[in-house]
Amino acid sequence: MAGTVEEDMHAVETPRLDHTPFYCEENVYLLCKKLSSTGVANADSSDLFVIFVSNDRKQIPLWHQKASKSEDGFIVWDYHVICVQRKSGTSCIVWDLDSDLPFPSPLNFYLSETVRPLSPHLTEYQRLFRVIHAPMFIRSFGSDRRHMKDSEGNWQAPPPLHDTIVAEDGTVHNLNEYMEIRAVDLIVILDDSVVNGVYSQKFGIIMGENQLLEFFSLLP
């Protein structure tokens, strides 16, 4: 059973982290490397998982987001990216640099506060999750930030100061392949092949809201 928010907060010493608003995928990429290099996570990042959140409409309702202008932190993103760290047993914590919740937060607490239930007539806004093992993501992800330029080549938001991210195989941009999350690709049954797929597939596995907690409980 996961600990209380206070227990998890005291159990993790948070290193200084880089954050550039509206570049959550790069923030999480650097987060994974920093957690591993500072000893907060395993040196090989094997206890970390990168999760892209989106849907067919590219409209996902989330709460407790710093960019929101609402008191409850409600916002609709086209996509979002977080990091989940598998702690001892079945305990997991979420690192979300854009959240106003305790940082990090226990996974079940984070989901209950951030991914709140939607009305039955809003099923098209259900949040879908692409889960990728962090070591695979760190090796494979590349972004030249083209998605943040308008049709005239102007930045829609100031870019990070660090260099663009290039994958180990030389790929300079594959962010769209991570962002493309469709209901038709959802897994139906969680089994060993799904768990193994997260560790072996470059773009991970897509699962629904009700499957995420179960997935982390099945990890070896």
Score class of each variant (00 low, 15 high):
G3W: 06
E7W: 06
E7Q: 15
D8V: 10
D8I: 09
M9T: 07
M9F: 06
E13D: 09
D18M: 05
H19R: 15
F22V: 07
Y23F: 15
L30E: 10
K33Q: 15
K33L: 14
L35A: 07
D47W: 12
V50K: 00
V53L: 13
V53K: 02
S54G: 11
S54N: 09
R57G: 11
R57S: 14
A67W: 05
S68K: 09
S70V: 00
F74R: 12
V81Y: 02
V81P: 00
C83F: 07
V84D: 00
Q85T: 01
R86L: 11
D96W: 06
L101Q: 11
P102E: 04
P104Y: 04
S105E: 08
P106T: 08
Y110D: 00
L111T: 03
S112W: 01
V115K: 02
P120L: 11
T123E: 13
Y125I: 06
Q126T: 10
F129S: 10
I132K: 03
A134T: 10
P135Q: 07
M136W: 00
F137P: 05
R139N: 06
S140L: 02
S140I: 01
S140H: 10
F141L: 03
G142E: 04
G142V: 03
M148F: 04
K149A: 01
D150Y: 04
G153F: 04
Q156W: 01
Q156Y: 00
P158Q: 03
A167Q: 01
E168G: 00
G170Q: 05
V172F: 05
N174D: 07
N174R: 02
N176Q: 12
E177I: 09
M179R: 15
E180A: 14
A183R: 12
A183Y: 05
V184T: 12
V188A: 11
I189R: 14
L190C: 13
V195D: 01
S200E: 15
S200P: 02
I206N: 05
G208M: 01
E209G: 07
E214N: 05
S217L: 04
L219I: 14
P220H: 07
